[in-house]
């Protein structure tokens, strides 16, 4: 395996593990609100305090709010209150905010988190949004939606593409004609409008899980056309190879020929397609959630985190709200590196 492929795969695995382990890595619950700290800027980790002493354990300064906003914003570091970083803290999460808690006792759960600070005191390494929710936590939890929507949708459309493409290429004749005309229709379909249409049929509020599967379904089911055409091409050339004919002369079944001889030929194309489709589908999810068609608040996704930027004052004043857009960049670059490396390996 090439160095490049190893590097890119390692990067992707780390990102996905971080996102999957959001419960452990995130310092807060994604829906937990800190109403006193709306749009708090990212806090800096310090090792050296105001007196010039070096600390082995990094710390952050507590934030204080000024009613009159200065050039640096309404918040200021309280130099007298250093909050040292604690690792492997047991934390209590209150699910739901204080408003919904009116209906009964809020649910409390205890679990281990990678880091936190002693209460009273908060740590917002990536800042907060307008409800005072921690951006880092939302980014990690939101990645579960955005990254895995892309992954599942790609698996769905590649699975469908391989199935239909190999049937089409292998059997030829009328199944080929029917499937390929279908693929042309799907390629011509403006799928963003298709999703608008599907969304319009559904009730106004759809739960986070339902809308996740809806997105995966629509993106995955409309995207099969291109991979199926590529797979068909490979199958078409592979089925006339002499070793396929030889196996047939020994009485091999169509299923055997496909499984042992023909589908292995398509692996390269399929892997390259996967590495290109996944980021494309992640972007599709982000776009839909940005437009309010995807996963809805309070569940985070990178798309609906970016949706905050639709407000001009957020766009102008709070640069840390771009975080969800910025994390897309390394993810895309790594996936494209994988695609590139896989393609090179085939040559």
């Amino acid at each position: 395996m090439q160095k490049k492929l190893k590097f890119a795969l390692l990067g992707l695995v780390l990102i996905h593990l971080a996102v999957l382990g959001a419960r452990f890595f995130a310092p807060y619950d994604p829906a937990e609100q800190h109403r006193d700290f709306a749009f708090a800027p990212p806090m800096l980790l310090h090792w050296v305090d105001a007196q010039g002493h070096l600390h082995l354990r990094p710390f952050v300064y507590a934030l204080v709010y000024h009613s009159e906003s200065s050039a640096a914003g309404p918040y200021e570091d309280d130099r007298s209150r250093a909050l040292p970083l604690r690792f492997f803290v047991e934390s209590t999460t209150t699910h739901g905010n204080s408003q919904s808690a009116a209906s009964g006792e809020p649910q409390r759960t205890n679990h281990l988190r990678l880091f936190g600070v002693d209460s009273p005191g908060e740590i917002f390494l990536f800042g907060t949004d307008d409800y005072g929710r921690d951006q880092l936590s939302r980014l990690l939890y939101g990645g579960q939606v955005s990254l895995f929507a892309g992954l599942f949708a790609a698996v769905l459309s590649l699975g469908l593409g391989i199935l239909l493409g190999s049937v089409s290429g292998f059997y030829g004749s009328w199944p080929d004609a029917v499937i390929m005309r279908g693929a042309e229709i799907f390629m011509a379909l403006p799928w963003i409008y298709l999703l608008f249409a599907v969304r319009a049929f559904l009730p106004l509020h759809v739960g986070a899980q339902e809308s996740f599967f809806l997105l995966v379904g629509v993106i995955g089911l409309t995207g099969w056309a291109r991979p199926s055409r590529l797979v068909r091409g490979v199958v078409l050339s592979a089925k006339h190879r002499e070793y396929v004919l030889a196996a047939r002369s020994f009485g091999a079944s169509n299923f055997y020929l496909l499984r042992r001889h023909i589908l292995p030929e398509t692996y390269g194309v399929v892997l390259t397609q996967a590495a290109l489709l996944i980021p494309q589908y992640v972007l599709a999810e982000v776009t839909f959630s940005f437009l309010g068609l995807g996963v809805s608040e309070p569940a985070p996704s990178w798309g609906n985190m970016l949706a905050e930027l639709q407000k001009l004052y957020v766009l102008e004043s709070y640069w840390w709200m771009f975080a969800a857009g910025l994390v897309l960049v390394p993810v895309f670059l790594l996936y494209h590196m994988v695609a590139d490396a896989v393609q090179q390996a085939q040559l």
Partner: peptide, 24 residues
């Protein structure tokens, strides 16, 4: 027939043996 071992006990050696064996 497509699937059965129809040709019976007749086998063939192809023109180009490099192509008639799967390189994988």
């Amino acid at each position: 027939s497509e699937n059965a071992h129809a040709s019976g006990p007749i086998y063939m050696i192809f023109q180009d043996c490099g192509l008639s064996t799967n390189p994988r």
